[in-house]
Design a protein around this nucleic acid. Sequence first.
DNA 1: ATTTAGCACTCCTTGCATGAGAGTGCTAAA
DNA 2: TTTAGCACTCTCATGCAAGGAGTGCTAAAT
Lengths: 352, 352
Amino acid sequence: MSPNQDLNNSLNDRAQHLLKVLVESYISDGQPMGSRNLAKMSDLEISPATIRNVMADLEELGLVESPHTSAGRVPTTKGYRLFVDTMLTVEPLTTDLVKRVSKNLQSDLSTNSLVESASMLLSGLTSMAGVVTLPRHDRDELRQIEFLPLSDQRVLAILIVNQKEVQNRIIHTDREYSHSELQQAANYLNELCAGQDLVVARQKILQELDHVRENMNELMRSAVEMGEKIFSGTDIDKPDYVVVGQTNLMEYEELSDIYKLRSLFDAFNQKREFLNLLDRCICAEGIQIFIGQESGHKALDDCSVVTSPYTVDDEIMGVLAVVGPTRMSYERVIPIVDLTAKLLGEALNNHS
Amino acid sequence: MSPNQDLNNSLNDRAQHLLKVLVESYISDGQPMGSRNLAKMSDLEISPATIRNVMADLEELGLVESPHTSAGRVPTTKGYRLFVDTMLTVEPLTTDLVKRVSKNLQSDLSTNSLVESASMLLSGLTSMAGVVTLPRHDRDELRQIEFLPLSDQRVLAILIVNQKEVQNRIIHTDREYSHSELQQAANYLNELCAGQDLVVARQKILQELDHVRENMNELMRSAVEMGEKIFSGTDIDKPDYVVVGQTNLMEYEELSDIYKLRSLFDAFNQKREFLNLLDRCICAEGIQIFIGQESGHKALDDCSVVTSPYTVDDEIMGVLAVVGPTRMSYERVIPIVDLTAKLLGEALNNHS
DNA sequence: ATTTAGCACTCCTTGCATGAGAGTGCTAAA
DNA sequence: TTTAGCACTCTCATGCAAGGAGTGCTAAAT
């Protein structure tokens, strides 16, 4: 039995309703809520004193707390969690918003522009920070390899990937190669690898490398060796992301402490910590939410992160996220993240 | 006669010395300096009362001001300016520091890595923000153009520039072209443009476009048209820069106002305003310094910017800058900026 | 003509006390 | 089980006084 169901059982309907009202009110106001106020807003015919009793229970369960003796209650991480898991009423998306998102995610844009747009949309629509990882490259399909001779024993290798993408590598060779030699080498490699994804292509080349040394002619050997150089030192496995709207976070009172802000911004810049978090939800099905300390990263202690993977052909290609104060409008943010993930995936899908 | 010489004349040696001591002390302390303290520090056998008289003069000239009646004096923008222009004693660079910079700016790094490293060095060595513009591309030398056929009436154009750099463009054509047709087109364009810089190459192609319509065969016409497409929508003229260490600026009291910080960070992100400023010093000879409001940008009102162009073959390729509070150690920052500019230029020079 | 000592004055900072406001917990009654 | 009542706690804004820092001015000294 999940801890949330546990809680669900030990709380009667009234207590749950009150928690819901409290969380919603606190999210929109930012003010701790007192019993008198909650009594009015709850639409229950109940006196403040009764509310106080309920609040004492909720506090005992760790769902709410008060900043100080006479300050009303605010939700704890655990309180937000229960709210998000069991009592969220998601706002339907307006058609205006859907239009705006799809207009900014046309499939004729480059991958980078799409990722950038998605990040800007997330940030713009939520007034918080938007994060989008670049699509992973390891499943990209290698269409074609070409070589161009440069001076000084260098060769330019061109990988055409996924119709639209092009990658270059300059590799150093043991001697000069003529145009037609390179043409042959390219043909050979294309026969070997074209149509495979990059990981498989790399594997094939490594396999070939093993038994090519004795069996094959000199040109083929150089071809395979060049192929190997193409993939070594490649950035296939280095993921990265784009952040937009960091500065939006400076507007929120609960983050306006300059030290907290600094460590948050530093975390964005160093990427390591944050990628760690995003990795964790690349395996999750849909939307995933980290509230406050749940993320396990100190810099994000006062933040919540709403993430969703985005997929192309049912394969997860990356993750997008909105980062903001724990006191954010989850009802608004969740559908926005969901929609953006879906449309970003579609746009990338139509690339190929 | 420059306004500074004006000032120099109306100030006797003693007043200048006192201003210098005051500025240096304020830069290292951040505390407004009172007459008693200044009397001690100045090494002049002079009483606080006398100092007060001198201060009154300096205040009248707009070189110092006091935050409030009983708070000592701090330098104004004009005061910093006089200090920087006429009484700076630059610290010599330690060999350690020179080693560290040159180790991080090896010429075997790519252009982007060099720019990034330079920015990190500036930021790291000064504990402020480092900014480095990417080298301009318009003087890049076009070595070679190649075409590769893709599917769906698309052609991949490859520009090899400056030995190490490669740029790709995908262009859409009116029909499919064979490999050998493209080869011929490339040969033709290479004959026309190879060895020129990008701006000249573009011009040549535009000229050719004019009288090619009637005179030439179909293939040549397509070649020129493709050439034209390569350069249209190019990013030759779009300059850009890399910022490192923005968050360092959060440590400084005088910038710790969250609204100021936000507009500063926004200015970094939007780039427009900031590029404007950097442009202004691309024509200046060496180090240039903007103190406080001198920059003319509200977001930078409480900042100083120390800039220097960097050159390759005596031609200015870009600008680097350190951004920090007006109360920065100019003596330390100036030689760091100078050195980094020099070594960045050298590293880029050895590319070709 | 400068320089200096003395003194009144201003302004910031800190600490302390005060009172109002908000909200709680507890008890006893409904 | 719910509610009214009440004492209690904590925050926040305000006012006030004392201490500190530093100035400007004046009058005397060099």
